[in-house]
Design a protein around this nucleic acid. Structure first.
Length: 275
DNA sequence: CCTCCATCCTGTGGGC
DNA sequence: TGCCCACAGGATGGAG
């Protein structure tokens, strides 16, 4: 589930633990989690004994500087989360990766294993999918005109393009639905058919939706998936306007929230408010 | 280039 | 209670 607000909330928790720390030991418990490195052992070898620099984020990717010009990449995938733990805490199931920094451990728990951990050299990073990411939806949000140019001529539904990380990095299925509700645009509208006013409404909705999500620690749809690194659930869940509320009443107009599949993903919207 | 679809995994919840 | 199926926050590669 983790989208930009969940990844950013995670980043803010782990940054104070990692920045400036030396990794005493890095341990890959499941090879698939290190699949983006040529040799799975590279993740352990390249992290162990090295000092950590800035903990950054681009879209849903955590990008962490490591000395010797390395970049430690973490993607939470569908079911990944990080925890801050002490060394003597028992490991929960699906702890696929961990680092020990002496003061504690950062553990990567990911049942569905769509997430990954990689450590790239500058060359490897340049050849990865990271440079292909669009501007960050929060830190590099393009102008309304810039966004319009990215959508111009496209026939795919706007919902599908908001999920395309090459256009804008950070929105996922939940926040794309929430942004479109706030902008009052129906998710299946062909992107290229949107008026400049509608594009501006979408652009204007992105920041408050994401910032509200971050302020409340993200969205935890159930107890087993995303949690903050301290184990708490994100509290944005109760503030969702449409996502997961099919059949319930729209808080704005009182109509009934609908669910339909768009771009193979469940989409939620209010037919009364969104056109 | 664009759009659509299957696929990688595991866990959960609903229906029977 | 048990079983089976559908579905779930993401990203990618290939077909058409």
């Amino acid at each position: 589930m983790p989208e930009l607000p969940e990844v950013e909330s995670t980043r803010r928790h782990i940054a104070p633990v990692l920045e400036g720390a030396v990794i005493r030991q890095a341990s890959v418990r499941r090879d698939r989690t290190a699949r983006h490195n040529l040799h799975p052992g590279d993740v352990e070898h390249r992290l162990t004994g090295r000092r950590v620099g800035q903990v950054g984020r681009r879209g849903k990717f955590l990008l962490i500087e490591v000395e010797e010009d390395l970049t430690w990449v973490i993607h939470l995938g569908m079911s990944g989360r990080l925890t801050i733990s002490s060394a003597d805490e028992p490991e929960v199931a699906h702890t696929n990766f961990m680092v020990d920094v002496g003061a504690g451990q950062i553990r990567f728990i990911d049942p569905r294993t769509f997430g990954f951990v990689a450590v790239f050299t500058a060359d490897e990073l340049a050849r990865s999918s990271i440079p292909g990411l669009g501007p960050d939806a929060l830190d590099q949000l393009p102008s309304s005109r810039g966004l319009g140019e990215r959508l111009a001529g496209r026939t795919a539904p706007i919902k599908a393009l908001l999920l395309d990380q090459r256009i804008l990095a950070g929105l996922g299925n939940i926040y794309a639905d929430e942004v479109l509700f706030r902008a009052r645009v129906a998710p299946r509208r062909p992107a290229g058919s949107l008026s400049p006013t509608e594009v501006a409404a979408i652009r204007r909705a992105i920041r408050p939706v994401l910032e509200d999500g971050i302020r409340h620690g993200g969205t935890s749809l159930d107890d087993l998936a995303y949690l903050l690194p301290d184990g708490r659930a994100g509290e944005f869940t109760s503030r969702l306007a449409v996502y997961g509320r099919a059949g319930e009443r729209c808080r704005r107009c009182g109509g009934v929230i609908q669910r339909m599949v768009i771009a193979q993903r469940s989409s939620h919207f209010c037919p009364g408010c969104q056109t």
